[in-house]
Lab assay of single mutants.
Amino acid sequence: MIVFVRFNSSHGFPVEVDSDTSIFQLKEVVAKRQGVPADQLRVIFAGKELRNDWTVQNCDLDQQSIVHIVQRPWRKGQEMNATGGDDPRNAAGGCEREPQSLTRVDLSSSVLPGDSVGLAVILHTDSRKDSPPAGSPAGRSIYNSFYVYCKGPCQRVQPGKLRVQCSTCRQATLTLTQGPSCWDDVLIPNRMSGECQSPHCPGTSAEFFFKCGAHPTSDKETSVALHLIATNSRNITCITCTDVRSPVLVFQCNSRHVICLDCFHLYCVTRLNDRQFVHDPQLGYSLPCVAGCPNSLIKELHHFRILGEEQYNRYQQYGAEECVLQMGGVLCPRPGCGAGLLPEPDQRKVTCEGGNGLGCGFAFCRECKEAYHEGECSAVFEASGTTTQAYRVDERAAEQARWEAASKETIKKTTKPCPRCHVPVEKNGGCMHMKCPQPQCRLEWCWNCGCEWNRVCMGDHWFDV
């Protein structure tokens, strides 16, 4: 396979590697080409510095992935760790964990309700045991953590790749202090920090972006993250068709209702045909949960890209028209025109101005929308079919299609509260000796007794199943 190397943020060049090629071997190839010592090179990928003893497969490097290699003399205490030698983080029983690669970060837990604080980093599902597709590297999971809308060759929703760059020099040479644990960490600028490894760059702020994971991409090709779309790892039924499908869209209502993408497309087109989208002054033209839940309008309007190009163009047109109407304007009634106009409040005669090729020149009556006339309008008909009709959803289907309910059931079956801080902690095999993952707590306690870890627990039921 081919990976592209950008040395000291210059133009990239291809390097041929195998899945079992080590990072140090990659350094040696680059060092020979650039005429520099291999031990002064640092390989940066997806916000993480890659260790010498890791392989291309370990690092989730795919065909035509772009890695950054910078030349920086080692500072005291760094060289041993980078070589894969006596790194205290690798000691058996050590409590410190390697910062998780962005290629394996899962933010789907952050669609849980606000009262489930902490689960994004504490609760991990076991539903990723799908067998890898044919042709994928051994052991590589097909679980997708992110979804994007690819405006490039795909023109559809695709699995996405999370990447990070330095907000100062805009190069992907920043190593994160810690990985993101929720969508806010990724979507809110300057929320996460790190250290830029580019020479002479003092940058410390992280800037995240997404790429389409279905095809090789260049540095400049980015895609918009659709953070309401998630892999259906909890096997929730769709609120409309009641099938279990994946991926799904999880509405931001209190129940976190789930809808499959085909039904979401149908829901949007139906509402669009009836012009029953909601115009929100802050958000724009949007839709609420299909069950009509309060405070559930979709905030990231790129989710409506699921409509496809033709329907999305209609959505944008109707949204612009609705904006004009909300501002007190009118639409030209001549067939084939429909231009938005903003006449004076007491102006009865409205002319669709033909300047700049935008208007048709038609003069019409503001009251009856017919060709302009003197005197009273002959008839004014009330528009028919403008009443909002509820999208029919079966109550039982709505009850079963809740992301929140599956989460709470998982928590109930696989977790116990920490005796000190009461945060839910998952036990997935292993011994009875637990350690609270909350940095402010870190209590060592017994899963069996529910009390602080002691010699009695150690001698009596340390390794009970």
Rank of each mutant, 00 (worst) to 15 (best):
V3P: 04
V3M: 07
V5A: 07
V5M: 03
V5G: 02
N8L: 02
N8I: 01
S9R: 03
E16Y: 09
V17H: 00
D18P: 08
D18H: 11
D18S: 13
I23N: 00
F24Q: 11
F24V: 07
L26D: 00
K27F: 00
K27Y: 01
V29G: 04
A31R: 01
K32H: 14
Q34I: 15
A38Y: 03
A38K: 04
D39M: 03
Q40H: 08
I44M: 07
F45K: 08
G47K: 00
E49M: 02
L50G: 01
T55V: 06
T55G: 03
V56Y: 02
V56S: 01
N58A: 14
C59S: 07
D62H: 15
Q64L: 09
Q64V: 04
I66P: 04
I66V: 15
V67C: 04
Q71K: 07
R72F: 13
W74Y: 10
K76C: 14
E79I: 11
T83N: 11
T83P: 14
T83D: 12
T83M: 14
G85Y: 13
D86A: 11
P88G: 11
A91T: 10
A91Y: 11
G94S: 12
C95W: 13
E96Q: 12
E98G: 12
P99N: 14
V105F: 11
V105D: 14
V105G: 11
D106G: 12
S108N: 13
V111C: 12
L112T: 14
L112I: 13
P113G: 12
S116Y: 06
V117N: 15
V121F: 12
V121H: 15
I122S: 15
H124W: 04
T125L: 05
R128D: 15
K129G: 11
D130W: 08
D130V: 10
D130T: 11
D130C: 10
A134D: 10
P137W: 10
R140V: 11
R140D: 12
N144M: 04
Y147D: 01
G152Y: 15
R156K: 12
G160V: 00
K161G: 04
L162C: 07
L162I: 12
R163M: 13
R163D: 15
C169E: 01
A172C: 10
A172Y: 08
T175N: 12
C182P: 00
N190R: 10
R191Y: 05
M192I: 13
S193K: 14
Q197T: 13
Q197A: 14
P199D: 12
P199L: 10
C201D: 00
P202Y: 09
T204V: 08
S205H: 10
F208K: 00
K211T: 14
C212W: 00
H215W: 00
T217D: 14
D219T: 09
K220W: 09
E221N: 07
T222S: 09
A225S: 07
H227G: 15
L228S: 05
I236V: 12
C238I: 01
T240L: 11
C241Q: 01
V244S: 05
V248P: 00
L249F: 13
F251I: 01
C253N: 00
S255K: 13
L261R: 01
F264D: 01
H265G: 08
L266A: 12
Y267N: 02
T270N: 04
T270H: 04
L272K: 00
N273T: 03
F277M: 08
V278A: 09
P281R: 07
Q282G: 05
L283K: 07
L283T: 09
G284R: 04
S286W: 01
L287W: 00
V290I: 10
G292E: 07
C293A: 00
N295E: 13
L307A: 11
G308W: 03
E309H: 14
E310T: 08
N313P: 07
R314K: 04
R314M: 03
Q316R: 11
Q317F: 06
Q317K: 14
G319Q: 08
G319K: 07
G319I: 05
E322D: 06
C323K: 15
V324Q: 05
Q326A: 12
Q326Y: 06
M327C: 10
M327R: 12
M327K: 15
C332F: 02
C332I: 02
P335K: 04
G338S: 13
G338Y: 08
P343W: 04
K349W: 03
K349N: 08
V350P: 03
T351G: 04
T351V: 07
T351Q: 07
E353N: 09
G357E: 13
C360W: 02
G361H: 09
F364M: 05
F364S: 04
C365H: 02
K369Y: 11
E370W: 04
Y372L: 05
E374C: 05
E376Y: 07
C377T: 02
S378V: 09
V380Q: 06
E382V: 11
A383S: 11
S384M: 10
T388R: 12
R392S: 09
R396S: 14
A397M: 11
E399T: 12
Q400I: 14
S407V: 07
E409S: 09
I411L: 11
K412Q: 10
T414V: 14
K416Y: 07
P417S: 11
C418Q: 02
C421E: 02
V423S: 15
V423F: 11
V423I: 13
V423E: 15
P424G: 10
K427Y: 15
N428Y: 13
G429W: 06
G429Q: 15
G429L: 11
H433S: 04
H433D: 04
C441N: 01
R442H: 15
L443R: 05
E444Y: 05
W445D: 01
C446I: 01
C451H: 15
E452H: 15
R455N: 15
D460C: 05
F463C: 01
V465K: 06
